[in-house]
Design a protein around this nucleic acid. Sequence first.
DNA 1: AAGCCGGGGCC
DNA 2: GGCCCAGGCTT
Length: 326
Amino acid sequence: MNINKLENWYADHHRKLPFRETKDPYHIWVSEVMLQQTQVETVIPYFERFIKRLPSIHDLAAIEEEKLFSLIQGLGYYRRFKNLHKAAKIVVTQHKGIFPSSFKEVRKLPGIGDYTAGAIMSIAYNKPYNATDGNVIRVLSRLMNINDDMRIDKNKKQITAINQSFIEKANPNIYTQAIMELGALICRPIHPKCKLCPLNSECLAYKNNLQNTLPNLSKKPEKKLIQYKVFIIRDNNYLYLRKRKEKLLGGMYEFPQFEEDLLPFDYHVIKVLGHKKHIFTHLIWEMKALEVKLISEPLDEWIKISIDDLKLYPMATAHKKIANLL
DNA sequence: AAGCCGGGGCC
DNA sequence: GGCCCAGGCTT
């Protein structure tokens, strides 16, 4: 690869982003965790609010988990932030609050895998450790015309090795951001802008008109459908929520919802508030929201809150949609 | 190696 | 409706 062309292209065309204004490893780390499986445009407002509220890793280590969840509600993959929180406490207690600077120590922290460790090492510390994400896999599988299924670990590792060989000849900080930026702006999943690409003269996919068939990503399994009745249980100015203990959306609050017809409480329906659908990675929720009056006793796991306090409880997007029906 | 874990943007 | 993701952890 002509690394100079890539780095020069980055110098001229990169987006100005809030997490590119800093070299603070804590800030880079927070941004990279937010960016896992999440688009830049989605992350920006969350990142700015997060850093304003928690400017240092000590602030993150000290915050209550529920307040942390309120800050990031809507971003998805909430376990990322349980791990982020846990890792901040480790850095404060075991590294005197100084974010570690060796790959080995960084990679050990919970929630930091190969990609995130490489991103932190290269972007924050300018060290030659590759950060190979979905963008890089797309760019390099096209550039080298590699048609192997990139959902298979072994094939991803092949790209990782190539990316590592490049970063060792590059300016690590610029290179890592440049190849991902190229993937985001030029070498896009659909409608890649090959005519504007600084690497088009050496791209084997472009040469063979295969840019629209690479990377080769095998199909994912079908999503399973689950239908829920969601209960808006009103009692004057109060209603009931529960905190999810499931792995899916764990820690977020929701209106009580049940899949089956046989329920552990009695109620009258006051009104059908509406139907909402929410699509996850591996399943689909179809939710029928019912405003009801409770006849029997509430369940122990429910908490009774004032309607005015609803916004104080972190909720995932599926149940935000239900809350918007109120 | 496969399954689990969110959400938004695009066509 | 179906496609795409700036991954990591568990089993």
